[in-house]
Design a protein around this nucleic acid. Structure first.
Lengths: 152, 152
DNA sequence: TGAAACTAGTTACATGTGCAACTAATAAAG
DNA sequence: CTTTATTAGTTGCACATGTAACTAGTTTCA
């Protein structure tokens, strides 16, 4: 007789579903109202926060790989939400920043995104919210450790 | 001056990353060692748990849509991990269950998956684990509510 | 009964994304 | 210097997945 496993209690499954549900729900704002993908949103937020960054730094800060960043940036450039110039001291690299239109769009989405987040955590007490955040921290760190091991 | 939003503290982003990291890490077991996709794993677990189910019930229990289930089942059938027969009383529907090979595979993966899960939560105290689970419950319910509102 | 509405499951099309290969530029090593 | 290794960013290919359309079978109800 071996260990039994119930899918609906299996943590990886639950986390996946949670993230999925959140994405679906939030994408009503990004996608339906503002025609921006999640990847695009991440780039927008990151550039709003840091001003000017190279694509590789955007990749790092958004947890996306450089291919995804490259494509997302291409789309955002086409919509004139971003500006790009080649780096002064390294002509391979580019500096990215929000255009005025990009800033305006960000200013419109950000409050709604934050409001949505607040709505999400309504059923959690203050201490539950803190604990949740702390648990996420710990799990992130733990996953980092496990992936190190995995590489052997 | 408007609200500022920091991506790395934004809950949707954090949950997405967590789920992503977990998937990547766990897929070393499913995919690399046993050549099974996450979708395939979900179907396997579900049939191991419930014995025999219709495809639509598998879809429901795995939180996958019927298309994804259909394709996953097709793959698993090709590998002789599943058996399928048309339903007695409804010839549109099919009954699915694990083949002997499917059961054996499940018996090999399940302990590793559970072991991995235990490894993941090592840094959490017992009460943190319970709290985490409870928070996931609440957020799931909340998302359900929000999606109802969304439909208006 | 018999037409209309519904349901189970599959297939077609479009899209997003990861991997590997590529181009162009810079850094390192000899 | 000049050859080699590394890095920034893009592109080609393969594949997974969601939406919508489809097939076939079942239920409703008139």
């Amino acid at each position: 007789m071996s260990e039994t496993l119930s899918l609906k209690e299996f943590l990886p499954y639950r986390c996946n579903n949670l993230a999925e549900q959140i994405s679906v729900s939030l994408s009503r704002i990004y996608v339906d109202k503002f025609d921006i993908t999640i990847a695009g949103w991440r780039v927008l937020v990151t550039l709003a926060e840091y001003g000017e960054l190279q694509a590789k730094d955007v990749a790092h800060k958004t947890s996306m790989d450089k291919v995804r960043v490259s494509r997302t940036v291409a789309t955002l450039l086409q919509k004139d939400l971003l500006e790009r110039r080649t780096c002064d001291n390294d002509s391979r690299a580019t500096q990215l920043r929000l255009s005025e239109a990009g800033k305006r769009l960000y200013q419109r989405i950000a409050p709604e995104a934050l409001a949505w987040e607040r709505e999400l955590v309504v059923p959690l007490t203050k201490s539950e919210r803190q604990l949740f955040s702390g648990i996420l921290d710990k799990l992130e760190i733990r996953l980092e450790e496990l992936s190190q091991d995995g590489k052997k």
